[in-house]
Design a protein around this nucleic acid. Sequence first.
RNA 1: GUGGUUGUAGCUCAGUUGGUUAGAGCGCUAGAUUGUGGUUCUAGAAGUCGCCGGUUCGAGCCCGGUCUUCCACCCCA
Length: 455
Amino acid sequence: MKPSIPKGTRDFSPTEVANRTYIINTIKTTFENFGFQPIETPSFENSETLMGKYGEEGDRLIFKILNSGDYLEKVTEQFLADKNSLKLTPQISEKALRYDLTVPFARYVVQHQNDITFPFKRYQIQPVWRADRPQKGRFREFYQCDADVVGSDSLWQEIDFIKLYDTVFSNLGLKGTTIKINNRKILSGIVEVIGASDKLIDFTVALDKLDKIGKEGVENEMISKGISKEAIAKVQPLFDFSGNNLNKLTSLENLLITSEEGKKGVSELRFIIENIQQLGLQSADLEIDVTLARGLNYYTGAIFEVAAPKSVSMGSIGGGGRYDDLTGIFGLKDVSGVGISFGLDRIYLVLEELQLFEKVALPKPTVLFLNFGDQEALFCMKAIAELRKDGIKSELYPEATKLKKQLNYADKREIPFVVIVGSQEVEKQVFTLKNMISGEQTSCSLSTLFGVVNK
RNA sequence: GUGGUUGUAGCUCAGUUGGUUAGAGCGCUAGAUUGUGGUUCUAGAAGUCGCCGGUUCGAGCCCGGUCUUCCACCCCA
C-alpha cells in the first residue's frame, strides 16, 4: 500500500511547524493583549448544533461522522429504498466535525451562561473541517483563529476589532492589508429601497461579484434572479461607488434616506469610520465595501473581511461581523456578539510568498557529542546532563559509527558545535570542542566548554 | 456539486509517430580517508511509469473508469 493522506489535508515539516507556531503565537499574544481569554471546544459536535447554521451550501460542506456500531440496524427498508441522502443522513450520523468556531462558541456561551461574566471576550485557535474541493489557499482541514465578544452591543467593540486586525498584521510584519467593512443593515436598506426585500440574498450575492464579472454581469444575474430593471436602476450609484470612506457614507445616506434600517446601518458605519480615523491604523487600510456580503446567515450588523496585500493573489485572510441573535438559536435571547477570524493557513501562504519568515529559527541542538563507544558515551552523557541543566540544547549521536557519518549529521542539521570524546579524552578527562563553522578545534575542560557554547 | 488540469527513482524533472534492457540532476549508500564534516573523484542501490480495466503482435505514450494535484465556477478562511 502506498501511504497517502486525504485530499485537502497536509503534513507539516519541522520548518513549517516552526513558522506556523510563530504566527499562532503572534496572534495569541495580541489576543491576550486585547483582553481575550482562550477556550477550546471539541473537534466534533452533535449534528443538530451545526446543521442549518451555514445555509444549504454549508450543510453540504459539513463532514458527517457515521454512527458507531451497526449504523444501519435501525434504519427502515423504506429509507434505504428511497435513496434520499438528505433524509437518511440524520439516521446514520448524529455527529459532525466542526465547520467553524463561531457556532460552537455560541453553543458554549448558552451552555455555560451561568459561569460566564458578560461581556465575555474569548479567543479560540483550532482546526475546522470543510468537505470543499481544495484549491489555492483552500483546504479541507485548516485553522481558524477567532476572537469574539458576546454580551455587548457597543460599537466600540467593532472599533477594537479593527484595531486588533491591524495590530496582528503589523506584528507579523504584513503591510498593506485591506480591512473591508460593510453593514448588513445597509444591504437590507438597499433592497428595501428598491422594493426587493425578499431578494436580499440573491441581490447581495450578485452584488458581491461586481469585482469579478463587472456591472453588466451583476445586472444580468440580478435580472435572472427576478429583480426588476427599475429596481436595479435605483441603485446605480452602487455600481460606480468610489471616493474615500466619507464620500461613500454621504452617498449611502442619500441613497437610503427612505429606509430607517438603512440609515441606522450608515450611522453605525460612520461611527466606526470616524473613530478609527481618530485612532489611526499602523499598517492596514480600512475601506467601506458595500459589495461585501459574507456570512449573511447570521451577521446582522457590521461585516468584515480582510484582503491580503494587492501584490499577492489570495482569497480573504480574515472575516467577521456582528451577530445579534446567534445564541438565540440555542435558547439565549438578546445577547449580541461580534467577532473576527484569522485564516492561519492563508496568512502562512501570504507570509511565505512575501518572504517574511526569515526570522523563524528551527529548534536544534547547539552541541552534538560524537559517539566512540559505550564507555565514551557514558562520559559524554554526564556532560550532556550538565549542559541541559543550564538550558544548552545538546545530544549524543546514538551510534558509534564512523566519524565521517557523525560529522555529516552535525553538518546537515547545522549544529554549530561538536564535542569529540575518544579514549584519549576520557583518560585525560577533557573534551575536544570543534566549531563547525570555522573548523577550529580545541581541547578544554567542561567549564571552558560551557563558556564557549553558551555565548 | 460543475468544468478543466496533473501524476515517471526519496526530490525536481526528461522520455520523439506506440517498438528491445525507462534516463538525468540532486539526494542516499560504499570507497579514496580505521579520530574529523562542508569540496572533489570512483562505484553502487533504488521505478508494479498513481491505481483498475480496455485497444494492440507490442502501452510510460492511445481509450474508459477511479484516486490524487493544481486551477476556474459555486462557496469560503
